[in-house]
Design a protein around this nucleic acid. Structure first.
Length: 370
RNA sequence: GCGGUUAUGGUGAAGUGGUUAACACGCUAGAUUGUGGCUCUAGUAUUCGUGGGUUCGAUUCCCACUAGUCGCC
């Protein structure tokens, strides 16, 4: 069965949307946050904990699984779902971003990208066809097109060439056969340039995909620029398909993205900052290593229903993080994922009740972001 | 009791007769956005056991004291 996106409701004051996404492995309401499990594992958590933390769709990464253990191993296991014992929806990123983040030794040509493995330095060659073939073997529910994620800032001419190349790559990738339950998303590029975002969006839609992502964001461009990039693109995306803002996971960015019509977000932030001792709370981010929590025997957040808050104190989690015990990072990861999934639940509820902007105001009053 | 030896921040320790006393750990704070990396960044001794002396100048040289340590009786 192909992916189904139902647009349940449109916000009257903003471009926010309430929707439902249905795959062969289950459905979820949008807007939604998707935790990242790069190597077929959301770091430190097992699938049960992930689901208990409110997650209903996760990411995995083509580049990482291609190198290790290899897509054939996962195919032999019966696909990613069976391999990692997770039965919910999975989205796989194409590896385009890794090409960007491991940029030291890469060379981009029309055919594809040559770069070095971060594991053993061996030379690798990834093409749009190869990326989709790997994802086909992985068996994820949502497959991402192989794009180029250009660095920021960049010249207009480069971004234009790059966006056009990404379009050609998208067409090539689309020709690769996927499994019947799989769906392919295209990625809009175009940097900070309005006309290029428009061109990229319109042309990507012309090729035709099951959903559309906005790429090339959260690469150091600054918030205002990012919001603009989103705006420039979502205008030209069809209403009846989901929109996914790649790599964005700051609570404040959720509001800004949703306001502009975004349905899906993914980010490593909740799990990465967790392992470094930080927690999201309704009043802002908290660094559990801070001295002031040494004798604080209250939970991270009083009203939080997550496993960490229901069972442990800040003082204990602080001790675990300082002592470098893995349980500390686990508990903070559980909490942070729950924080973001709960925030999305609250946002969806506010959309249902026609008070999205009011809820945003309420949230911002308490939340001290940067 | 005698002789030797050492004495630098929270810890382990470098070092020099003369501008801001290495480095590591710890501690304190910050960062982190389609995860290579429990990672990265910054701050953290107005002062070198105590008291004298030599010197233009001493944490560095000398003396005494105190404390630790080793050996001998």
């Amino acid at each position: 069965m192909k992916l189904k996106y139902e647009l349940i409701k449109k916000d009257k004051q903003t471009s926010a949307r309430l929707g439902r996404l249905t795959t062969d492995h289950g459905s979820c309401e949008t807007p939604i946050f998707m935790p990242v499990g790069t190597q077929a594992s959301v770091k430190t958590l097992n699938p049960e904990e992930l689901v208990a933390a409110g997650s209903s769709i996760v990411l995995a990464n083509t580049y990482h699984l291609w190198l290790r253990p290899g897509e054939d191993v996962i195919e032999a296991a019966g696909g990613l779902h069976k391999f990692m014992n997770y039965s919910g929806p999975i989205l796989t990123d194409s590896g385009g971003f890794q090409v960007f983040s491991l940029a030291d030794t890469r060379k981009i040509t029309e055919e594809g990208v040559t770069f070095k493995s971060h594991l053993d330095g061996s030379n690798l060659f990834l093409t749009p066809e190869k990326s989709i073939e790997i994802q086909s073997k992985l068996g994820s529910d949502i497959v991402m097109s192989f794009d180029e994620c250009p660095a920021y800032p960049n010249t207009y001419d480069y971004i234009k060439d790059s966006a056009l190349r990404t379009l050609r790559w998208a067409e090539r990738g689309k020709k690769i056969k996927l499994k019947s339950h799989q769906n392919l998303f295209g990625i809009v590029q175009g940097g900070e340039f309005e006309d290029l975002r428009k061109m990229s969006a319109l042309e990507t839609v012309k090729i035709g995909f099951d959903g559309y992502a906005i790429g090339g964001t959260s690469v150091g461009e600054g918030k205002d620029v990012m919001y603009k990039m989103v705006e420039y693109a979502t205008k030209y995306l069809p209403e009846d398909k989901p929109r996914y803002l790649m790599g964005v996971g700051d609570p404040l960015d959720f509001f800004e993205g949703i306001k502009r019509g975004i349905d899906m977000f993914d980010c490593v932030l909740p799990t990465r900052i967790a392992r470094h001792g930080n927690a999201f709370t309704r009043s802002g981010k908290l660094n559990i290593r801070n001295l002031k929590y040494k004798l604080d025997f209250n939970p991270l957040e009083e009203k939080c229903d997550c496993y960490a808050c229901q069972n442990f104190s800040k003082a204990y989690i602080r001790h675990l993080i300082i002592a470098k015990e893995v349980l500390g990072g686990r508990l903070l990861s559980i909490h942070n994922i729950r924080f973001l999934t709960k925030l999305m639940e609250d946002i969806r509820l506010s959309l249902k009740e026609d008070r999205f902007l009011e809820f945003e105001q309420e949230f911002l009053k308490q939340y001290k972001g940067k």
